[in-house]
Structures are given as structure tokens and as C-alpha cells.
Nucleic acid binder design. Structure first.
Lengths: 213, 213
DNA sequence: TGCGGTACTTTTGTATACAATGATACTTAA
DNA sequence: TTAAGTATCATTGTATACAAAAGTACCGCA
């Protein structure tokens, strides 16, 4: 196990990101540096750095009236899915081109865990494993650019989906889709894997849309 | 004209971004905060904030051995184009859905300038107007997510192209393509506009690839 | 009571101070 | 001469101090 010391600034960033995506800070709410310093027990320096990064990701916006929380809107969610539908397949293709035993193993492990948590109806861990599945692909697709483009989108989509509660039937389907994608990858069938992945993201989107009607 | 006071931190960020993309800092080169403070004549605080943001964009990487400049590799360029080919069309579609007189005017103006600078063989201004064209679309496509995804890609592609010198014949073709895209947009022919845009990005990519062989 | 001005408080941007960590170079001893 | 240990320097992470800008509230005067 590798121990890496994470700086306060990084911790603050991750904490704030999670809290914004998780809805602790409401969209439109304004926040001040000092308030965050108090809540997190650190000085302004790390808070400022975190805020700058959040601003870069457009999770907050620094207006003349103060820094206000942006979070993710329904339309943002749809837009993110539209993008992912079109490029997540590229990552899959890259993954296949750089295929290793280890990569396949990681993917299968994530899916196995998904099935396990499904039987336990443990939605939180299930989501984590969903992230693991997709991030494994991003990390091993051989393209930093693709990873940097997709990873934040997936992270945000994930959190959004969490807010609009997930029903079990979709979760079951989702894991099945992961399995199918994984098998296509193992068989090095790039066109199939790409198509399945696009469909997978599309299904997730459709599921949310239907539920919101 | 709107005057907005830009903080030192923002200025440092933009300056460093431009210098990295422009090749002033070489890929692999390591930089220290103090060196930058000296070069830019500011204290560490704004420099740090800028570095964090650059790190977020993966233009630098903070390793245990110091922060090293990443810049853009040839493969990064190809990956960025591959992504843009697939989603730049979405922005065009959004632009058409949110079409305004003002939007069309802005687009046409950018193209007019491009033709002007072409006659002057002024490559720098020509590139600026190329950026203006694409950024107008991003800004008016009605999706923050799409804009935030595409804008950095385009900015980096642009700078990369600058390094590998642009020949005139491609520039002429490029402006023609812009004009065609703009007319398809004005006619609200979304499928055509999308297709033309995808082709446009693809051509830019092909042009670089051929030249590098 | 209403309006205006002033002073205070809040908030942010920047600089700097301090501590910890890691690298480097120098000295000393074998 | 080499190796090891120590001391110093460089670099970064964090905290805080200070200044400027902006908002707010209170007070006085009409």
C-alpha cells in the first residue's frame, strides 16, 4: 500500500467538491472564505486554493457579489451524458489497444463487487464500484486528455444521479451492461465494446429522464 | 467597453498558461515557485494559485521532485482532435437552437477578419480570429458544460498548431470551411452544420499529421 | 420622519513569516 | 580517496498580517 501525504489544500478541495456535488451547499448559496475556514478548521490559504480549483471546474462562481455555489443542474446532467455518449467509446477503444491482464482483472473485480453490493442493496458502495469500473477504463485508455475530459464528467454525473434516487431495476441492468462491455473488451471486439458503452451511458440518461417526468 | 479588474492571480495564470502553451517553458522542465515569483514580480500567493489551476488543467504536474511542465504532446493533440470531432457538432447544434442575430453577426465578423488577415498574411491575428469563431459558438451554445469541455481543448489545439507552423493553403481552406459552417448555421440546417464542423476539425488534424510525416 | 454622510465591519487580494521536509555539499575519519 | 554524517540551503505547505474595496448600519441634520 502506498501512503501519500495529501496536503490540506487537496483535502479541502475534495471535501468541498463532495459537499457541493452532494448537495450540502445549495445551488445559489453564497459562501465566504472565512466561513469555510471555520467549518473546516484550516486557514485561508488552502481554502483559497481549493476555491480556485472549484471555480475552474465551475462548481462555484466568483461574482462581484461573492462566491456562489453552482452545483449541477438538470440540463448540465443531460449535457454531460450527451458528451459521454459520444466519447466514452473512445476511451474503451484506447483501453482495448492498451489491454493488459491487470486491466481486465480490475474491471472484473469492480463488476464482481457491484454484484455483491447489489445483493446487499448497498447503494453507496454500489456507486463506488460503478465509479471504479469507469475510472479503470479512463486510467488505462492511454490518453491523459481523454481521462481528464471524462473523469470529471463521470464524477458529476454520479453525484447527480445520487440525488435523484436510483431504483433497483436500473442498477441491475447497469451491472449487466458493465458485464457485457467487459466481455466485449476481453474479446478485443472494439466496435462492439464502443457501441455497448455508448448505449450504457444513454440508458443511464434515459432512466433519469423518465423518472423525472 | 467593459473594464474589469483582473486579479494578479488571474494574470499570472493566463501568462503562465500562454507561456507553457507557447513553448517558453519546455515540456519536462521543472519550475519552482520562487523562480516564477522573480520572473513575474509577484509574491508566492498568486503564483501558487495559478500553479494549482495549471495543475488542474494538467499543463503542469506536481511530482515529489518538483513541479514539472507538461505542455502538449503530439498524441495529446490527436486525442484532443478526436474528442472535438465527436462533440464540436453538439455545440453547433446548441448554437442553432439558441440562434440570435447577434450570434450570426459575431460569427460573420470573425470570418471577415480572418479573410482580411489572410490577405495580410498575418498569422497571429488570423489565429486569434479562428479562436473567436469557435469560442463564439461555445459561448452561445447554451451549455456551460459543453463550453467548459471544448474551450480548453480548442485553446490547446490552437497553440499546438502554432508550434508546428501553419501553411497558407490550409489557412485558406480553413476560412472557407468556417464560411460554409456559418452559412449552414444561418440556414438553421443543423445536420449539415454539425457534419461540416466535424469535417473541419478532422481536416485540421489531417493537415498536421501529414506535415509531420 | 426621511435623507445623507461617515465610520465600522466584512471580505477579499496580496505579501510575508514560519515550520517541516528533502536535497546538497562539505567535513572528517578510516 | 572514499564514505558517512552533519549542517546548511532550497522548496514547499500553512498561517497570518496588512491593505484596499465594498457593503452596512448608525447617527445627525433637515
Amino acid at each position: 500500500m502506498e501512503y501519500k501525504t495529501v496536503s490540506l489544500a487537496d483535502q479541502v478541495f475534495e471535501r468541498l467538491e463532495a459537499d457541493i456535488l452532494g448537495g450540502k451547499y445549495q445551488r445559489g448559496e453564497t459562501i465566504t472564505e472565512l466561513r469555510l475556514c471555520g467549518e473546516l478548521g484550516v486557514s485561508r490559504t488552502p481554502v483559497r486554493e481549493a476555491l480556485r480549483r472549484l471555480s475552474q471546474e465551475h462548481l462555484i462562481e466568483e461574482t462581484p457579489k461573492g462566491t456562489v455555489v453552482m452545483g449541477i443542474s438538470r440540463k448540465d446532467f443531460e449535457d454531460m451524458c450527451a458528451i459521454r455518449i459520444r466519447i466514452e467509446g473512445l476511451a474503451v477503444r484506447g483501453f482495448i489497444e492498451n489491454l493488459t491482464e491487470e486491466g481486465i482483472r480490475e474491471l472484473r473485480e469492480a463488476i464482481d463487487f457491484q454484484e455483491f453490493y447489489l445483493t446487499r442493496s448497498d447503494a453507496d458502495h454500489l456507486r463506488n464500484m460503478d465509479s471504479r469500473f469507469h475510472e479503470t477504463i479512463y486510467n488505462r485508455c492511454g490518453s491523459t486528455i481523454l481521462r481528464d475530459t471524462l473523469a470529471p464528467l463521470h464524477k458529476k454525473v454520479q453525484k447527480f444521479r445520487r440525488q435523484s434516487m436510483q431504483e433497483r431495476s436500473r442498477a441491475v441492468k447497469s451491472v449487466e451492461e458493465h458485464r457485457a462491455i467487459c466481455e466485449a473488451i476481453a474479446a478485443k471486439d472494439a466496435p462492439l465494446a464502443e457501441a455497448l458503452m455508448a448505449r450504457h451511458v444513454e440508458n443511464a440518461l434515459k432512466n433519469i429522464i423518465e423518472k423525472e417526468l
